[in-house]
Amino acid sequence: MTAVGVDRGRENTLTVTLQIAVAANIAGGGDGRGGAGAGETVLVTSMEAPSLLSALEFAHAWIDRHVDLSHTKVIIVGRELAETDFAATVAPLVRFPQFRPTIRVLVANGRAEAVLREAAPVLEASPGKFWELQVGGWDVTEFIPRADFHQIYIDMSSPGAAGLVGLVAVRRREEGPADPSHKAKGSHMAGTIPRRGGPGIEMMGAAVIHGGRMVGVLNGDETGIGKMVRGTFREMIKTVRDPLHPGRFIVVRVFPREPPAVQVRIGDDGTPRVSVRVPLEGDILAIQSGEHYERPERTRQVEQAVKESLMTDARATLDKAQNEFGADFFALGYHAKRLFPTWQAWEAFAWDEKFPDAEISIDFDFRVRRIGLLRETVPWR
């Protein structure tokens, strides 16, 4: 079994959907569709059950293989269920011997059943490899969080942090209104990405888990800021407006220079004061205007443009965290915890209650390290 989906039930407590690899067809490279006909590499089946684990036994009524979680790559929780019972649905799995803490957990922006019926391998014959590569995108982009069960379980059960869970959805079928104006790629989330063709599902953004339930969602840019502060960010390609040429853009590859530096102190009035510095560096990939920003005395303008763009995203993300969700998905509480001599003192401080009123500043220190394969831009003739 490669993937499991859990939704609010229609005829019982839960609707549980299983995606099972059809081993006989994988070697020949089937068409990947989920009806398990000739040449198909996955079988997708749904059932109404009182619990997730009882559904595994229930499936033996019509599945002629031993159904277990030993090789499961992802567990997907439908949005409606995640908004009320996320922790109650996935946390009990930690006791189950077949369950591995490295399993990735996702939240469907819709129903998990619909996602699994559209999640057909296209570039991979193996459904397991398909999911490994799909969720592994966190390492090469900013808009997918690294959401393995172990870290989510810690974030849910410990004071001082809220969980970030990857958002997955069925691609939209209709095109949006014509509007060719510039929009950052990270302004979207799963289910709203403007694209045509390709696989039936997509991942972008994150669900915020706080108090055992999903309290809201982040778009791609906001997810990236959360990863930068947490220290799980690896790289991104950032498109920023040219400071000297309106309507033109500079494209920069950004990656960490050092781990983020987080300083926390508690004021005399009990208010947390947090300062975050995120050291970044990057390469200039493209300069649309042809301006000579690659010169040493001019790279500062690129650095400032990237910093201002990141600061805009950070302010919007911090506002969501404190004023809309009241949830520390930056995991700043893990740094504040070191100020307390005992666990009892840390719990008594009630970080989650004080976080919305905390004084938090996030600053970015971006440096241009390389200018790409051109030493100097040649003007257009």
Rank of each mutant, 00 (worst) to 15 (best):
N109W: 02
A169T: 04
T102D: 11
R117K: 11
E83P: 00
G110R: 06
F96C: 08
Q98H: 12
R111Y: 13
W62Q: 12
F149M: 00
A120M: 07
G163T: 00
L167Y: 03
D85P: 01
V42K: 00
F96K: 03
T84N: 12
R171C: 11
A55N: 04
F130E: 02
V107Q: 01
K129R: 15
V115R: 02
P50A: 00
K73E: 14
A61D: 10
S70A: 15
V105I: 15
G78A: 05
D64C: 10
Q98A: 09
A88L: 11
G137D: 02
R172E: 13
E80A: 12
M156S: 06
N109K: 12
I152D: 00
R172P: 08
L81V: 04
S46V: 06
P50W: 00
R111G: 13
P121T: 02
A114Y: 10
A55G: 13
E118T: 03
F86N: 00
R95H: 13
A108Q: 01
T45M: 11
I76T: 04
A49E: 08
R79S: 08
I76G: 00
F86W: 14
K129D: 15
F149G: 01
L164K: 02
R100A: 13
F149I: 03
T141C: 07
E174W: 11
G128Q: 05
I76S: 03
R146Y: 10
L167W: 07
E83L: 01
L164E: 02
L93N: 05
K129Y: 13
V170D: 00
L167I: 09
E113Y: 10
W131A: 05
T84P: 06
V140L: 06
H71E: 15
G137E: 14
T45L: 15
M156E: 14
W138N: 04
A55S: 15
S46N: 10
G136D: 11
P92C: 05
D139Q: 15
K73F: 07
T102A: 12
L167H: 03
R111M: 15
P50N: 02
V122I: 12
H66T: 14
L56P: 06
W131M: 09
R117H: 15
W131I: 04
H71L: 12
D85M: 06
V67E: 06
A112Q: 03
D68V: 10
V122E: 14
